[in-house]
Computed example of a mutant assay.
Amino acid sequence: MTYPTPKELYRSADLLKGYDPNRRLGFADGWDFRMYRRYIADGAASPKTLAVRRGQAEHDAYISDALKRFLDQSTPKLVGIMGGHGLSRTDAAYRDVVQLARALTRQGYFIVSGGGPGAMEAAHLGALFADADDAVLDRALALLGQAPVLPNLLGAIADDGEIIESRAADLDAAQRWMNVALEARQLAPPKAGESLAVPTWRYGQEPTIPFASHYAKFFQNSLREEALITNSRAGIVYARGSGGTVREIFEDAERNYYVGDTAAFTPMIFFDRDGYWQEDATYDAAGKVTHAALKVDDLLTRLFRLAPGVDAAACLAKIRFTTDIAEISDVLAGHSATAVRNLAFTLQGEPLKVSTAVLCRRAGD
Protein backbone atom coordinates (compact mmCIF):
# COMPACT_ATOMS: atom_id res chain seq x y z
CA MET A 1 0.00 0.00 0.00
CA THR A 2 1.44 3.35 -1.03
CA TYR A 3 1.10 6.62 0.82
CA PRO A 4 -1.22 9.24 -0.71
CA THR A 5 0.10 12.03 -2.90
CA PRO A 6 -2.50 14.79 -2.42
CA LYS A 7 -2.85 17.28 -5.26
CA GLU A 8 -4.79 19.75 -3.08
CA LEU A 9 -5.04 20.59 0.59
CA TYR A 10 -7.27 18.28 2.57
CA ARG A 11 -10.79 19.20 3.57
CA SER A 12 -12.54 18.02 6.71
CA ALA A 13 -14.58 15.53 4.66
CA ASP A 14 -11.35 13.95 3.41
CA LEU A 15 -10.03 13.41 6.92
CA LEU A 16 -13.36 12.12 8.22
CA LYS A 17 -13.99 9.72 5.35
CA GLY A 18 -15.20 6.41 6.78
CA TYR A 19 -15.95 7.90 10.19
CA ASP A 20 -19.20 6.54 11.63
CA PRO A 21 -20.40 8.65 14.57
CA ASN A 22 -22.90 6.00 15.66
CA ARG A 23 -20.85 2.80 15.48
CA ARG A 24 -18.77 1.63 18.45
CA LEU A 25 -15.10 2.43 17.74
CA GLY A 26 -16.20 4.22 14.59
CA PHE A 27 -13.72 6.91 15.54
CA ALA A 28 -10.82 4.57 14.80
CA ASP A 29 -12.09 3.87 11.27
CA GLY A 30 -12.03 7.46 10.01
CA TRP A 31 -9.43 8.04 7.29
CA ASP A 32 -7.37 10.40 9.42
CA PHE A 33 -7.07 8.05 12.38
CA ARG A 34 -6.49 5.04 10.13
CA MET A 35 -3.56 6.92 8.63
CA TYR A 36 -2.25 7.48 12.16
CA ARG A 37 -2.60 3.75 12.86
CA ARG A 38 -0.60 3.03 9.72
CA TYR A 39 2.00 5.59 10.77
CA ILE A 40 2.39 3.71 14.07
CA ALA A 41 2.63 0.32 12.33
CA ASP A 42 5.28 1.70 9.95
CA GLY A 43 7.55 2.78 12.79
CA ALA A 44 6.10 6.18 13.75
CA ALA A 45 8.91 8.77 14.00
CA SER A 46 11.46 6.07 13.00
CA PRO A 47 10.18 4.61 9.70
CA LYS A 48 10.94 0.91 9.40
CA THR A 49 12.04 0.96 5.78
CA LEU A 50 13.38 3.32 3.15
CA ALA A 51 10.17 2.80 1.17
CA VAL A 52 8.12 4.07 4.11
CA ARG A 53 10.43 7.02 4.59
CA ARG A 54 10.22 7.92 0.90
CA GLY A 55 6.45 7.50 0.81
CA GLN A 56 5.96 9.86 3.74
CA ALA A 57 8.45 12.36 2.32
CA GLU A 58 6.68 12.32 -1.05
CA HIS A 59 3.33 12.92 0.63
CA ASP A 60 4.76 15.88 2.54
CA ALA A 61 6.30 17.30 -0.64
CA TYR A 62 2.92 17.15 -2.35
CA ILE A 63 1.12 18.78 0.58
CA SER A 64 3.80 21.50 0.73
CA ASP A 65 3.25 22.23 -2.93
CA ALA A 66 -0.52 22.26 -2.45
CA LEU A 67 -0.08 24.75 0.39
CA LYS A 68 2.08 27.00 -1.76
CA ARG A 69 -0.48 26.99 -4.56
CA PHE A 70 -3.32 27.67 -2.13
CA LEU A 71 -1.53 30.68 -0.67
CA ASP A 72 -0.56 31.88 -4.15
CA GLN A 73 -4.21 31.97 -5.18
CA SER A 74 -5.33 34.11 -2.24
CA THR A 75 -2.19 35.73 -0.71
CA PRO A 76 -3.98 36.09 2.62
CA LYS A 77 -2.91 38.10 5.65
CA LEU A 78 -1.99 35.05 7.72
CA VAL A 79 -2.09 35.37 11.50
CA GLY A 80 -0.90 32.38 13.46
CA ILE A 81 -2.56 31.41 16.73
CA MET A 82 -0.49 28.96 18.74
CA GLY A 83 -1.29 27.42 22.10
CA GLY A 84 -1.59 24.28 24.17
CA HIS A 85 -3.59 21.18 23.27
CA GLY A 86 -4.70 20.71 26.89
CA LEU A 87 -7.00 23.73 27.07
CA SER A 88 -10.53 22.60 27.95
CA ARG A 89 -13.47 23.67 25.85
CA THR A 90 -15.01 25.15 29.01
CA ASP A 91 -11.97 27.21 30.04
CA ALA A 92 -12.25 30.98 29.92
CA ALA A 93 -8.96 31.02 28.00
CA TYR A 94 -10.54 28.82 25.30
CA ARG A 95 -13.41 31.29 24.86
CA ASP A 96 -10.91 34.16 24.76
CA VAL A 97 -9.11 32.55 21.80
CA VAL A 98 -12.45 31.95 20.05
CA GLN A 99 -13.36 35.62 20.38
CA LEU A 100 -9.95 36.81 19.19
CA ALA A 101 -9.96 34.56 16.10
CA ARG A 102 -13.53 35.62 15.37
CA ALA A 103 -12.62 39.32 15.55
CA LEU A 104 -9.48 38.96 13.43
CA THR A 105 -11.33 36.96 10.77
CA ARG A 106 -13.92 39.72 10.58
CA GLN A 107 -11.09 42.19 10.02
CA GLY A 108 -9.87 40.27 6.98
CA TYR A 109 -7.09 38.18 8.52
CA PHE A 110 -6.76 34.49 7.72
CA ILE A 111 -6.20 32.36 10.81
CA VAL A 112 -3.63 29.56 10.72
CA SER A 113 -3.07 27.18 13.61
CA GLY A 114 -2.38 23.55 14.33
CA GLY A 115 -5.27 21.21 13.75
CA GLY A 116 -5.45 19.67 17.21
CA PRO A 117 -7.53 20.31 20.33
CA GLY A 118 -7.30 23.11 22.89
CA ALA A 119 -6.21 26.57 21.77
CA MET A 120 -5.79 25.31 18.21
CA GLU A 121 -9.40 24.17 18.01
CA ALA A 122 -10.58 27.44 19.58
CA ALA A 123 -8.78 29.42 16.86
CA HIS A 124 -10.51 27.54 14.05
CA LEU A 125 -13.87 27.65 15.80
CA GLY A 126 -13.65 31.42 16.12
CA ALA A 127 -12.80 31.79 12.44
CA LEU A 128 -15.64 29.47 11.40
CA PHE A 129 -18.22 31.46 13.42
CA ALA A 130 -16.89 34.90 12.47
CA ASP A 131 -20.20 35.97 10.95
CA ALA A 132 -22.45 34.15 13.42
CA ASP A 133 -24.58 35.91 15.99
CA ASP A 134 -23.39 35.78 19.59
CA ALA A 135 -26.32 33.54 20.51
CA VAL A 136 -25.38 31.01 17.82
CA LEU A 137 -21.77 30.94 18.96
CA ASP A 138 -22.92 30.46 22.55
CA ARG A 139 -25.00 27.46 21.46
CA ALA A 140 -21.97 25.97 19.73
CA LEU A 141 -19.81 26.47 22.82
CA ALA A 142 -22.50 24.89 25.01
CA LEU A 143 -22.52 21.82 22.76
CA LEU A 144 -18.75 21.55 22.92
CA GLY A 145 -18.93 21.83 26.70
CA GLN A 146 -20.73 18.49 26.79
CA ALA A 147 -17.38 16.83 25.98
CA PRO A 148 -14.88 19.42 27.21
CA VAL A 149 -11.63 17.43 27.24
CA LEU A 150 -10.17 15.00 24.73
CA PRO A 151 -9.16 11.75 26.47
CA ASN A 152 -5.53 10.75 26.29
CA LEU A 153 -5.23 8.35 23.37
CA LEU A 154 -1.46 7.93 23.58
CA GLY A 155 -0.76 4.21 23.71
CA ALA A 156 -4.25 3.24 22.56
CA ILE A 157 -2.80 1.79 19.35
CA ALA A 158 -0.47 -1.21 19.39
CA ASP A 159 2.79 -1.33 17.46
CA ASP A 160 1.04 -3.18 14.63
CA GLY A 161 -1.55 -0.42 14.28
CA GLU A 162 -4.38 -2.35 15.90
CA ILE A 163 -6.61 -1.02 18.65
CA ILE A 164 -5.73 -2.11 22.18
CA GLU A 165 -9.06 -3.40 23.42
CA SER A 166 -8.46 -2.28 27.01
CA ARG A 167 -8.37 1.31 25.68
CA ALA A 168 -11.66 1.04 23.80
CA ALA A 169 -13.41 3.25 26.35
CA ASP A 170 -10.97 6.07 25.61
CA LEU A 171 -11.67 5.76 21.89
CA ASP A 172 -15.40 5.85 22.59
CA ALA A 173 -14.89 9.01 24.65
CA ALA A 174 -12.88 10.53 21.78
CA GLN A 175 -15.77 9.69 19.47
CA ARG A 176 -18.12 11.59 21.77
CA TRP A 177 -15.63 14.50 21.76
CA MET A 178 -15.65 14.52 17.95
CA ASN A 179 -19.40 14.05 17.64
CA VAL A 180 -20.27 17.15 19.64
CA ALA A 181 -17.80 19.09 17.46
CA LEU A 182 -19.62 17.90 14.35
CA GLU A 183 -22.92 18.93 15.91
CA ALA A 184 -21.52 22.36 16.75
CA ARG A 185 -20.21 22.75 13.20
CA GLN A 186 -23.78 22.39 11.89
CA LEU A 187 -24.61 25.69 13.61
CA ALA A 188 -22.09 27.67 11.56
CA PRO A 189 -23.62 30.33 9.29
CA PRO A 190 -23.93 29.67 5.54
CA LYS A 191 -21.05 32.08 4.96
CA ALA A 192 -18.64 30.29 7.26
CA GLY A 193 -15.25 31.80 7.95
CA GLU A 194 -12.20 30.04 6.53
CA SER A 195 -8.97 29.06 8.26
CA LEU A 196 -5.92 26.91 7.65
CA ALA A 197 -5.03 23.99 9.92
CA VAL A 198 -1.51 22.56 9.87
CA PRO A 199 -1.50 19.34 11.92
CA THR A 200 0.80 16.31 11.93
CA TRP A 201 0.45 12.56 12.29
CA ARG A 202 3.42 12.74 14.64
CA TYR A 203 0.80 13.71 17.22
CA GLY A 204 -1.96 11.68 15.63
CA GLN A 205 -3.33 10.66 19.02
CA GLU A 206 -4.76 14.19 18.98
CA PRO A 207 -7.41 13.92 16.25
CA THR A 208 -7.70 16.74 13.75
CA ILE A 209 -10.58 19.08 14.59
CA PRO A 210 -13.35 19.61 11.98
CA PHE A 211 -13.62 23.43 12.06
CA ALA A 212 -10.98 24.56 9.53
CA SER A 213 -11.70 25.02 5.84
CA HIS A 214 -8.29 23.74 4.64
CA TYR A 215 -5.79 21.28 6.09
CA ALA A 216 -2.10 20.87 5.35
CA LYS A 217 -1.34 17.71 7.31
CA PHE A 218 2.24 16.43 7.45
CA PHE A 219 4.04 13.33 8.62
CA GLN A 220 7.18 15.29 9.56
CA ASN A 221 6.49 17.58 12.48
CA SER A 222 9.52 19.71 11.64
CA LEU A 223 7.98 20.57 8.25
CA ARG A 224 4.69 21.31 9.93
CA GLU A 225 6.32 23.67 12.44
CA GLU A 226 8.21 25.45 9.66
CA ALA A 227 4.99 25.88 7.69
CA LEU A 228 3.21 27.32 10.71
CA ILE A 229 5.87 29.84 11.69
CA THR A 230 7.15 30.98 8.31
CA ASN A 231 3.71 31.46 6.77
CA SER A 232 2.27 33.43 9.71
CA ARG A 233 3.78 36.61 8.32
CA ALA A 234 1.15 39.04 9.61
CA GLY A 235 1.93 38.07 13.21
CA ILE A 236 1.66 35.25 15.72
CA VAL A 237 -0.52 35.10 18.82
CA TYR A 238 0.53 32.81 21.66
CA ALA A 239 -2.24 31.55 23.93
CA ARG A 240 -1.15 29.67 27.02
CA GLY A 241 0.74 26.49 26.27
CA SER A 242 3.73 24.39 27.25
CA GLY A 243 6.47 22.49 25.42
CA GLY A 244 5.15 22.69 21.87
CA THR A 245 4.13 26.33 22.18
CA VAL A 246 7.51 27.24 23.67
CA ARG A 247 9.20 25.61 20.69
CA GLU A 248 7.13 27.80 18.39
CA ILE A 249 7.89 30.93 20.40
CA PHE A 250 11.61 30.44 20.09
CA GLU A 251 11.52 29.36 16.46
CA ASP A 252 9.70 32.63 15.83
CA ALA A 253 12.18 34.47 18.07
CA GLU A 254 15.11 33.06 16.10
CA ARG A 255 13.66 34.34 12.83
CA ASN A 256 12.95 37.74 14.34
CA TYR A 257 16.39 37.95 15.95
CA TYR A 258 18.13 37.53 12.61
CA VAL A 259 15.61 39.51 10.55
CA GLY A 260 18.09 42.35 9.88
CA ASP A 261 15.18 44.63 8.92
CA THR A 262 13.10 46.37 11.57
CA ALA A 263 10.05 46.61 9.29
CA ALA A 264 10.05 42.84 8.73
CA PHE A 265 10.06 41.97 12.45
CA THR A 266 6.88 39.90 12.87
CA PRO A 267 4.59 40.85 15.77
CA MET A 268 4.57 38.46 18.72
CA ILE A 269 1.40 38.69 20.84
CA PHE A 270 1.22 36.87 24.18
CA PHE A 271 -2.43 36.39 24.89
CA ASP A 272 -3.66 35.30 28.31
CA ARG A 273 -5.91 37.11 30.77
CA ASP A 274 -4.04 35.65 33.76
CA GLY A 275 -0.58 36.80 32.69
CA TYR A 276 0.61 33.26 31.99
CA TRP A 277 3.64 34.44 29.99
CA GLN A 278 4.68 37.13 32.50
CA GLU A 279 4.81 35.17 35.75
CA ASP A 280 6.69 32.27 37.24
CA ALA A 281 4.82 29.12 38.21
CA THR A 282 4.22 28.45 41.89
CA TYR A 283 4.47 25.13 43.71
CA ASP A 284 3.38 23.63 47.02
CA ALA A 285 5.69 21.99 49.54
CA ALA A 286 5.50 18.69 47.66
CA GLY A 287 6.57 20.32 44.42
CA LYS A 288 3.11 20.17 42.82
CA VAL A 289 2.17 23.10 40.57
CA THR A 290 -0.36 25.37 42.25
CA HIS A 291 -0.32 28.08 39.60
CA ALA A 292 0.81 27.32 36.05
CA ALA A 293 2.80 30.05 34.34
CA LEU A 294 5.91 30.44 32.20
CA LYS A 295 7.70 33.76 32.27
CA VAL A 296 9.20 34.75 28.90
CA ASP A 297 8.84 38.53 28.82
CA ASP A 298 12.20 39.43 30.36
CA LEU A 299 14.11 36.89 28.29
CA LEU A 300 12.63 38.10 24.99
CA THR A 301 13.39 41.71 25.91
CA ARG A 302 17.03 40.85 26.64
CA LEU A 303 17.30 38.76 23.49
CA PHE A 304 16.03 41.40 21.07
CA ARG A 305 18.15 44.13 22.60
CA LEU A 306 21.05 42.10 21.22
CA ALA A 307 19.54 41.63 17.76
CA PRO A 308 21.86 42.80 14.96
CA GLY A 309 20.94 45.43 12.39
CA VAL A 310 17.56 46.50 13.78
CA ASP A 311 16.04 49.22 15.93
CA ALA A 312 15.54 47.22 19.13
CA ALA A 313 12.96 49.61 20.58
CA ALA A 314 10.85 49.49 17.42
CA CYS A 315 11.03 45.69 17.36
CA LEU A 316 10.13 45.39 21.03
CA ALA A 317 7.09 47.58 20.39
CA LYS A 318 5.76 44.70 18.28
CA ILE A 319 5.88 42.34 21.26
CA ARG A 320 2.74 42.71 23.36
CA PHE A 321 1.38 40.94 26.41
CA THR A 322 -2.30 41.72 26.17
CA THR A 323 -5.82 40.40 25.65
CA ASP A 324 -7.08 43.74 24.33
CA ILE A 325 -8.34 42.92 20.85
CA ALA A 326 -8.19 46.55 19.72
CA GLU A 327 -4.53 46.79 20.76
CA ILE A 328 -3.73 43.53 18.98
CA SER A 329 -5.51 44.75 15.85
CA ASP A 330 -3.47 47.95 15.84
CA VAL A 331 -0.16 46.08 16.08
CA LEU A 332 -1.12 43.66 13.31
CA ALA A 333 -2.44 46.45 11.09
CA GLY A 334 0.87 48.27 11.31
CA HIS A 335 2.65 45.21 9.95
CA SER A 336 0.13 43.76 7.49
CA ALA A 337 1.39 45.56 4.36
CA THR A 338 4.90 44.19 4.95
CA ALA A 339 3.44 40.74 5.60
CA VAL A 340 1.50 40.65 2.34
CA ARG A 341 4.52 41.93 0.39
CA ASN A 342 6.85 39.32 1.86
CA LEU A 343 4.40 36.48 1.25
CA ALA A 344 4.02 37.60 -2.37
CA PHE A 345 7.80 37.65 -2.86
CA THR A 346 8.05 34.13 -1.47
CA LEU A 347 5.25 32.73 -3.62
CA GLN A 348 6.59 34.42 -6.75
CA GLY A 349 9.92 32.64 -6.35
CA GLU A 350 11.79 35.69 -5.08
CA PRO A 351 12.49 34.64 -1.48
CA LEU A 352 15.79 36.51 -1.29
CA LYS A 353 13.76 39.74 -1.24
CA VAL A 354 12.45 38.58 2.15
CA SER A 355 14.94 39.27 4.91
CA THR A 356 14.01 36.15 6.85
CA ALA A 357 14.59 33.84 3.87
CA VAL A 358 18.27 33.67 4.72
CA LEU A 359 18.97 34.08 8.41
CA CYS A 360 21.70 36.69 8.76
CA ARG A 361 23.92 34.87 11.24
CA ARG A 362 27.24 36.46 11.94
CA ALA A 363 30.13 35.53 14.15
CA GLY A 364 29.35 36.29 17.77
CA ASP A 365 25.57 36.62 17.26
Rank of each mutant, 00 (worst) to 15 (best):
P6Y: 04
K7E: 15
E8C: 01
L9T: 01
L9E: 00
S12N: 02
A13T: 05
A13G: 00
L16A: 10
G18Q: 05
P21C: 06
N22D: 15
N22F: 13
R23G: 02
G26S: 09
G26C: 15
F33V: 07
Y39Q: 05
I40W: 06
A41W: 10
D42T: 14
A44Y: 15
P47E: 08
K48W: 08
K48G: 12
T49K: 13
T49Y: 12
A51S: 11
V52L: 05
V52G: 03
R53Y: 02
R54H: 09
A57C: 03
A57Q: 15
E58L: 11
A61C: 06
Y62P: 06
D72T: 14
P76L: 01
K77L: 13
G84F: 06
S88N: 07
T90P: 00
D91I: 04
D96K: 10
R106G: 14
Q107I: 03
F110R: 03
A119N: 07
H124F: 11
A132I: 03
L144F: 11
G145V: 10
P151A: 15
P151R: 15
G161D: 08
E165W: 11
L171Q: 15
A173T: 02
R176P: 03
V180P: 04
A181S: 14
E183K: 05
R185C: 03
P189E: 08
K191E: 15
G193H: 04
E194S: 08
E206T: 13
P207V: 13
P210Q: 11
F211K: 06
F211Y: 13
A216K: 05
A216G: 01
S222G: 09
E226P: 00
E226K: 12
A227Q: 07
N231C: 02
R233V: 01
G235V: 08
R240G: 01
R240I: 08
G241Q: 04
S242P: 00
G243I: 08
T245Y: 00
E248Q: 15
F250M: 03
E251H: 05
D252Y: 04
E254C: 11
E254G: 01
R255Y: 12
Y258Q: 04
T266A: 14
P267S: 11
Y276V: 02
W277A: 01
G287Y: 09
K288Q: 09
K288R: 15
K288A: 13
K288C: 04
T290D: 06
A292W: 08
T301N: 06
L303H: 07
R305Y: 09
A307Y: 03
P308N: 09
V310Y: 05
C315R: 03
A317W: 04
A317K: 06
I319R: 00
F321R: 03
T323A: 13
I325Q: 10
A326P: 08
A333C: 01
S336M: 02
R341F: 00
E350H: 13
K353A: 14
R361T: 05
A363S: 15
G364S: 14
